[in-house]
Amino acid sequence: MMAKIDDVVNGRGWETRKKILEILGNGPTTAYEISKRLGLNYSTVRYHLDLLERSGLVINMRQGSRQLYSISRNLVSMKII
């Protein structure tokens, strides 16, 4: 199910999602690395990444055994952050 971008951007937790997007703006990274950088629980970061992915703002890809997240072209064209 696709999440509405307005709900993701204007909803509760946006500040956390914004920090995640700022980290991803520096290049692809794992949820674990994001959780360590933000000092948040891994499951919290995964929750926010899932919302961002369902809204089309973030994509994930496999690199070996690692799952990397990066910002999508949609986010770049929308200039949300």
Rank of each mutant, 00 (worst) to 15 (best):
M1I: 01
M2F: 02
M2R: 13
A3S: 11
A3T: 02
A3K: 12
K4D: 15
I5K: 13
I5W: 03
I5C: 06
D6A: 14
D6C: 08
D7F: 13
D7E: 15
V8Y: 13
V8D: 11
N10I: 11
N10H: 14
N10Q: 14
N10A: 12
N10D: 13
G11S: 10
R12G: 08
R12I: 10
G13P: 10
W14D: 12
E15K: 15
E15W: 11
T16Q: 13
R17I: 06
R17Y: 09
K18H: 11
K19L: 08
K19W: 00
I20K: 06
L21A: 09
L21E: 08
E22Q: 12
I23F: 04
L24N: 05
L24M: 06
G25L: 06
N26A: 09
N26Y: 08
G27A: 05
G27D: 03
P28A: 15
P28C: 07
P28T: 01
T29H: 04
T29I: 09
A31H: 05
A31C: 08
A31Q: 07
A31S: 15
Y32K: 15
E33I: 10
E33D: 15
S35N: 07
K36Y: 03
K36V: 14
R37Q: 13
R37N: 09
R37G: 00
R37T: 07
R37V: 03
L38G: 10
L38D: 08
G39I: 01
G39R: 07
L40N: 09
N41W: 02
N41L: 02
N41F: 01
Y42S: 04
Y42E: 11
S43R: 14
T44K: 07
V45E: 07
R46D: 06
R46H: 11
R46K: 15
R46M: 14
H48A: 05
L49C: 12
L49G: 13
L49K: 13
D50M: 07
L52K: 10
E53H: 10
E53L: 05
R54V: 00
S55M: 03
G56T: 02
L57F: 08
L57K: 04
L57C: 05
L57V: 05
V58R: 10
V58Q: 11
I59Q: 05
N60D: 11
M61N: 10
M61W: 00
M61I: 07
M61K: 15
Q63Y: 08
Q63R: 13
Q63F: 05
G64T: 04
G64H: 03
G64W: 06
G64C: 04
S65W: 01
S65A: 05
R66M: 09
Q67F: 01
Q67E: 15
L68M: 14
S70H: 03
I71L: 09
I71W: 01
I71N: 10
I71E: 09
S72V: 02
L75V: 05
V76R: 12
V76C: 00
V76I: 12
V76T: 03
V76W: 01
V76E: 12
V76M: 06
S77Y: 03
S77I: 06
K79F: 00
I81D: 01
I81H: 00
